[in-house]
């Protein structure tokens, strides 16, 4: 299992980064006028007078108990900020992945089925364009197209933000009349409440649902373009490979119609590599989210990270890097596992 050493490696890197920060942590926290005695006490209190390796131990202990430190800029615990902003990114990333997978697989199948036809050529040029246009160029151009050129037409879409002013959001717990709920269940409900589309759907708040969805259309299109192109290319090449195998000829020979041959026999095998690509693009989506969120003004993980870097808010940088890396590793692990579940050949060997 690669996951454990990678996690420890990531922990170590974030720890070392924190130590590399130029400047004196004591005077950064307590102000320029802190005396040496005060600082000694400060160092002692936070264990900064201990050897590095001991400090790393302390740090591990804090992270394991869920303490990621505080944001210097906002004066709030990093975990609070995560609870508020992680849902935004998860919602965006999952919706994009959904769109990318559905459209990508369809495009790939179409291209493979009519191989070397104009449809195929067109689809592949489209897929190549998709990986070649940088996320931010696509973002800026689509914002320009839908918010400026198409303004005052039915097709106009909001270029930034999550909601139109005036649309109200209610925590799910409140809408369901479970205000006295507390602890973890409440925390989870609040977490999901931040995903406005889901919130709108489960509380039957149609106004919230439609407005949040409209705001998400452009970011989702922009973020899903790259994984969509990759998935389309992968589906096409893997389907083409499978189509030439012997059992396909057998399937045709025994008189199955073409649709059954493609969808029941070819697709099952062809989609295996696609699963890997889908899983791996989730990691890329997190990176892409930095750009997409910056362009469309969504306060998710990526945007927060970017702001923290510009303002040198190291607590936030450290905590968020850690969480992003954890997610990344977890996704990779999930892909490996799902691969074994889907492909008996891997399970048995």
């Amino acid at each position: 299992m690669l996951a454990i050493p990678v996690l420890i490696g990531i922990l170590f890197i974030t720890f070392v980064l924190n130590r590399l920060i130029p400047g004196d942590p004591c005077r950064a926290m307590l102000g320029e006028k802190a005396t040496d005695e005060v600082c000694d006490a400060f160092f002692k209190r936070y264990g900064l007078d201990q050897p590095m390796i001991v400090q790393f131990g302390y740090y591990l202990g804090r992270v394991v108990t869920g303490d990621l430190g505080d944001s210097m800029r906002f004066g709030r615990p990093v975990t609070d900020m995560l609870m508020e902003r992680l849902p935004v990114t998860i919602e965006l990333a999952l919706l994009s992945l959904l769109v990318a997978t559905i459209v990508g697989v369809i495009l790939g199948v179409v291209a493979a089925y009519w191989q070397n036809s104009p449809v195929d050529l067109f689809t592949m040029i489209f897929a190549n364009l998709g990986v070649s246009i940088p996320v931010f160029v696509l973002g800026l151009l689509s914002a320009y197209l839908f918010a400026v050129i198409l303004k005052d037409t039915p097709f106009s879409l909001p270029p930034s933000g999550r909601l139109t002013a005036g649309v109200r959001v209610q925590p799910i717990a409140v809408a369901w009349g479970m205000e006295d709920l507390s602890g973890l269940p409440r925390g989870l409900l609040d977490f999901f409440s931040q995903m406005y589309v889901i919130n709108g759907a489960v509380t039957l708040n149609w106004k919230l649902f439609s407005d949040a969805s409209r705001h998400l259309i452009l970011p989702v299109i922009v973020l899903s373009t790259i994984p969509m192109s990759v998935i389309a290319r992968m589906t096409r090449s893997s389907l083409l490979e499978v189509m030439n195998l012997d059992y396909m000829r057998t399937a045709r020979a025994k008189g199955l119609n073409e649709r059954n041959v493609v969808f029941r026999h070819a697709m099952r095998n062809a989609l295996l590599p696609v699963v890997t690509v889908v899983g791996l693009s989730l990691g890329g989506l997190l990176s892409g989210a930095v750009l997409t969120e910056t362009i469309f003004g969504l306060t998710g993980v990526g945007r927060t990270m970017f702001d923290a870097i510009s303002s040198r808010d190291y607590g936030v940088i450290q905590g968020f890097t850690l969480v992003i890396a954890f997610t990344y590793v977890a996704v990779n692990l999930l892909v490996d596992v799902s691969y074994a579940v889907l492909d008996p050949r891997i399970r048995l060997s």
């Binding site: 920060i21 890097t321 890396a325």
Partner: peptide, 22 residues
């Protein structure tokens, strides 16, 4: 190869950003 795998698992853009600012 384990080292390579580890580098591949690291999320690129956030790390690039951190490294740049440092």
């Amino acid at each position: 190869m384990r080292f390579t795998d580890m580098m591949l698992t690291l999320p690129q853009i956030p790390l690039l950003l951190v490294a740049m600012s440092l």
